[in-house]
Simulated scan of single mutants.
Amino acid sequence: MTTPASLDPREARSRLDELTVIDVRTPGEYAGGHLPGAINVPLDQLGRALPDIRTAASRGEVLVVCASGARSENACRTLARHGVDVATLAGGTGAWAQQGHEIDRPRQGGGGRTWAMDRQVRLTAGSLVLLGLLLALLVHPAFQLLSAGIAAGLVLSAVTGTCGMAALLARLPWNRPCGADLDASLARLRNG
């Protein structure tokens, strides 16, 4: 597998006006803060958005972003298999913010913010490991298999660069796109 082209956050910032930026995080993560002008197309909706992303790429360069760069690299590979040439933001929105660049936060203050997917995965995995250990102590030693299964999944995730738990968590209501929101994103891609 080839590594997708990437742009450093400084270079991306200097060219932001000429790029179509697609954020492949969940809608909840996107609402928590994204690059100015970014269009939210969750990774699991990439197939549905393919014709519109292809249209955007025919008009100019497309930059795909996520929190750290891992999901956007997966998205770039998927798009490349379908003949769409895009680049990823090196280090994702984390690196972007770390360098002091502007982040749009449409839902600021108080509730309504969704945790980043990696934080959701850490909470879920840690909770399941603790649950397995407690059940093993209090109920039956076989519950240690729950903790072992979670540990094996985390190792597999690190080795493959994919995360089954994140894929499952992305299906929860607070991480799911509203139909109208995705339709609005696709319309923005079509119309430039």
Rank of each mutant, 00 (worst) to 15 (best):
D183H: 06
A90I: 04
G164N: 09
P51H: 00
A148C: 10
D85M: 05
N175H: 00
D104A: 14
T124C: 15
G100N: 12
L182S: 03
E29D: 11
T114P: 05
I22N: 07
L130I: 11
V41M: 03
Q120E: 02
P177T: 02
A125Y: 01
G192D: 14
N74H: 15
V139I: 09
R13Y: 02
I53R: 06
V86F: 12
A142C: 03
C163A: 12
L172C: 07
L154D: 13
L19Y: 09
A57N: 06
E73V: 04
G132A: 09
A116P: 03
L89I: 01
A70E: 15
T26V: 07
D52K: 02
D17I: 03
A5W: 00
A5H: 04
G112Y: 08
I22D: 13
Q45H: 10
G149S: 10
L145Q: 02
E11Y: 06
A5P: 00
G179E: 07
L43K: 11
L35Y: 01
L79F: 03
T2C: 05
D44R: 08
R15N: 14
R188Q: 13
E73H: 04
Q98T: 04
R188N: 03
R113M: 12
G179R: 08
A80H: 14
A167N: 04
E61S: 12
A142I: 09
G32N: 12
S72H: 14
A70M: 15
